[in-house]
Simulated assay, not measured.
Amino acid sequence: MNAATMRAVQVVRAGAPFAVTQLPVPEPGPGAVRIKVHACGVCGGENLARLGLLGVQLPRVPGHEIAGTVDAAGPGVTVWKPGDRVGVGWHGGSCFVCDSCRTGDFVNCADRRIVGLHYDGGYAEYVVAPQDALARIPAALSFEEAGPLMCAGITTFNALRNCGARPGDTVAVQGVGGLGHLAVQFADRMGFRTVAVNRGRDKEAIARQLGADEYIDSTEDKSPGEVLGRLGGAAAVISTVGSSPAQADIVQGLSPNGRLVVIATDHEPIPLGPELLVFGRRVVAGWYSGHAKDSEEAMAFAALKGVRPMVETRPLEDAEAAFQNLGAARFRTVLTL
């Protein structure tokens, strides 16, 4: 590289705003790839680095919805070459030797690495990542579209294809936001009767446009779960809202043998009595992201079936404002370089 430094955004001190800075351009070591970042999505997961959680060492460059091109490959890299369009998501590498990895369950690797937490992420012009963390981006997707699919996209896609529902079954998506608007599209394209559940009617039109067959306004009835039950019940509910009381309520809308899949949380216990679980054999489960191959499959499906995140773009220097605006954004914010 001729350029000695690059633009980057860092978490310098726990709880402090993001800081725009200049850093040395990183060099890829053995088995690693340097990516020229074209876009990086803004996600609430950046709070882990921002608040100094999970043992993160500061300063740290956040960002785990990365889309760009391979710029250089370190020794031993056999799959990737300069110019390849690639993404890197939350799951930033596996150890390959723990019990989970040896059974192919790489997401539950005992020593898994998280991009933007265990090593510098995509809020920078360049990022270095292990070669196993890279996912190939289809030509049909722009970098701005691919970025959010590396986290919000893969999580909703993976949760849906592992929820146990079959084409023709009713699947509800609880929450039509950054995660939910993608879940509605994926559910529709997978052939489910798709029910969107959200507060108020302001997102009903867009939810139906994205593929929802039914819409439940959670403010119009004491129990949205009961409303879902009156619609015939759902084989699965994908909960994209961080509200334990709302998640407890929606279980009432599950059909016998139905499954609530939680992919967002407020970190509070779900206040749920056991009767709904015992009678009807209902299940409450969680789902956690996915590895690079899962990301490739999520993006390939999105490209094939026309699933796209709704994004607003901002320059890298606006990272702090973009993060502060997460709750008001509709629906994903992407930093562009």
Rank of each mutant, 00 (worst) to 15 (best):
S239C: 09
S223K: 00
G200D: 11
G104Y: 07
E204M: 08
L304P: 00
Q131T: 07
T155H: 05
G273K: 12
H91P: 00
V79D: 11
A32N: 12
G74E: 14
R189Q: 05
N325L: 04
T313E: 13
G177T: 12
V79L: 14
A322C: 03
A183P: 02
Y123N: 04
V284N: 05
G233C: 03
G153M: 10
G211T: 13
Q247N: 03
R332D: 10
Q10N: 01
P315F: 11
F186Y: 15
D188K: 14
K81V: 11
L54P: 00
G45C: 03
M1V: 13
E125D: 12
E220R: 06
V37L: 08
A328T: 14
E46R: 00
V11F: 10
H181L: 03
G104K: 07
P17R: 06
G200T: 14
V307T: 02
G191K: 11
F186D: 00
G104N: 03
R330Y: 15
Q324H: 00
A196E: 00
C98V: 14
A3C: 09
D202F: 12
F192N: 06
L182Y: 09
A133Q: 01
A49H: 05
G68T: 08
T194L: 01
E125S: 00
T333E: 15
T21F: 06
P245S: 06
L276Y: 07
E46S: 02
T333C: 11
W287S: 15
T219F: 13
G63H: 01
V237S: 07
R85L: 12
G191Q: 03
D318N: 10
A285L: 07
L260W: 07
C98R: 06
R281Q: 15
L53Y: 04
C151E: 08
S255V: 12
F106H: 14
L272W: 11
P269E: 13
S255C: 08
K203N: 09
S244E: 06
V25L: 05
V334K: 04
I66M: 04
L304K: 14
G83F: 13
D221M: 07
R208A: 05
A246Q: 13
P59E: 09
G177P: 08
A302D: 11
A234D: 02
R314I: 01
D213M: 07
D99Y: 12
E275A: 12
Y126Q: 08
P167C: 06
W80R: 05
R282L: 10
V334I: 11
L48F: 07
F18G: 01
